[in-house]
Design a binder for these strands. Structure first.
Length: 157
DNA sequence: GGATCATATGCTT
DNA sequence: AAGCATATGATCC
């Protein structure tokens, strides 16, 4: 059985889905399709985590996750989850850590099914902001949020 | 600063 | 198995 949580964040509506044991997917939506089911404890944990995240605190350890992907993708995502809040990394640096190539890393990161929990917005390109599948504007807002709002993120993208 | 090529991985024939 | 698309990077000019 899959459960879903509808969450209204400062940067838009979010829909989290998961089963009894782990989160499976997070997506940004324009409007909620159905009702919010929070029968699973894990979705309550997810909601608490998101509350803390958007309030500017350290959200702590995220709920268990079960993203589906290849071993390489899991490797990349696992490396991402080691990043602390507000820490940035470039595609090239991340590629070096997993002994791969920047472009491959970008593709793996882009296929991440659990943004926010897996901080894919903390990845930036070497000379600009990089990309973000749900929308580059969203990525800027997230980085702004993490840095406290009065940062020096003046990317020209 | 723009154009071009090299490179790794995943998806689709 | 081969070709194509990528959320890049380094190297030309």
């Amino acid at each position: 059985m899959l459960y879903s949580l509808n969450y209204s964040s400062p940067i838009g509506l979010i829909e989290v889905t998961g089963d009894e044991n782990a989160l499976k997917q997070l997506k940004f939506v324009d409007s909620f399709r159905g009702e919010s089911y929070q029968h699973a404890d894990i979705l309550k944990d997810a909601e608490i985590w998101l509350d803390r995240y958007f309030s500017g605190k350290d959200p702590g350890t995220p709920p268990p996750m079960a993203p589906e992907g290849t071993s390489f993708q899991q490797k990349v995502w696992n490396e991402l989850m080691k990043l602390k809040r507000g820490e940035l990394i470039s595609y090239g640096e991340l590629a070096r850590r997993v002994n791969s190539h920047a472009r491959a890393v970008g593709q793996a990161v882009g296929r991440n099914p659990l943004p926010l929990f897996i901080p894919c917005h903390r990845i930036v390109a070497a000379h600009n902001l990089g990309g973000y599948t749900p929308g580059i504007e969203l990525k800027k807002k997230l980085l702004l949020l993490e840095s406290g709002g009065d940062n020096t993120l003046d990317f020209t993208v």
